[in-house]
Simulated scan of single mutants.
Amino acid sequence: MNIPKLLIIKISHTIIWLFFNVVIFYILYTAIFNKIDIWVWIGVGLVFMEGLVLLAFKMFCPLTVMARKYSDSTKDNFDIFLPNWLAKHNKLIYTSIFAVAILILAYRILQA
């Protein structure tokens, strides 16, 4: 069975995207409900590491760079199973949610 490389990248990219969604919304949930634990800090670290990776790759996911070898598509979702509008605005949407979570988290810490 020969699975196309672009399909493998799209599946992997989508799974990683889902993982980071869970992490970001977990951080937001725990900050809102003041249920801060060690997993929050691990999640914050993971999201910051992802940010550093994006900075290192000029704001592109390394999987996007890899997928570019297998597609000439100009769509924003050529490398991930997301609607095009979400793929296009993904960084803005989730950075904003993460920033709100961090602000609430900072408030909780300073309140303690």
Results as ranks from 00 to 15, higher is better:
55 L>G: 11
37 D>G: 13
40 V>C: 11
100 V>G: 03
55 L>C: 09
83 P>I: 11
47 V>Y: 03
69 K>N: 15
104 I>T: 09
111 Q>I: 12
62 P>W: 02
31 A>I: 09
103 L>P: 01
12 S>L: 14
21 N>P: 02
54 L>F: 12
77 N>L: 07
18 L>E: 11
93 I>F: 02
105 L>P: 00
20 F>L: 09
63 L>K: 04
57 F>Q: 02
34 N>P: 05
70 Y>V: 02
75 K>H: 12
54 L>W: 05
32 I>R: 05
79 D>H: 12
26 Y>L: 12
65 V>M: 08
27 I>M: 09
98 F>A: 10
107 Y>T: 09
43 G>Y: 01
57 F>C: 02
100 V>P: 01
7 L>D: 13
33 F>I: 06
40 V>M: 02
10 K>Y: 06
109 I>Q: 02
11 I>G: 02
44 V>T: 05
86 L>W: 06
72 D>N: 12
89 H>P: 03
78 F>D: 00
4 P>D: 03
59 M>E: 14
72 D>K: 14
112 A>R: 15
47 V>S: 01
34 N>A: 06
70 Y>P: 08
54 L>A: 11
62 P>S: 04
98 F>P: 00
79 D>L: 01
71 S>M: 13
11 I>P: 06
3 I>T: 11
59 M>D: 10
32 I>D: 14
57 F>P: 06
15 I>R: 12
24 I>M: 09
25 F>E: 07
24 I>T: 04
39 W>M: 14
13 H>R: 07
38 I>R: 12
99 A>E: 01
16 I>L: 15
15 I>Y: 11
70 Y>E: 00
110 L>G: 15
96 S>G: 15
56 A>T: 09
56 A>P: 09
35 K>R: 13
19 F>Y: 14
60 F>Y: 12
6 L>K: 12
59 M>R: 13
52 L>W: 06
23 V>L: 11
40 V>D: 13
54 L>E: 04
66 M>P: 04
43 G>W: 04
55 L>Y: 10
15 I>E: 06
33 F>Y: 15
33 F>A: 05
95 T>K: 11
84 N>F: 01
47 V>R: 00
11 I>W: 00
2 N>S: 09
95 T>P: 01
98 F>R: 04
8 I>F: 01
98 F>M: 08
45 G>M: 08
44 V>P: 01
13 H>C: 07
51 G>K: 03
12 S>E: 09
32 I>C: 04
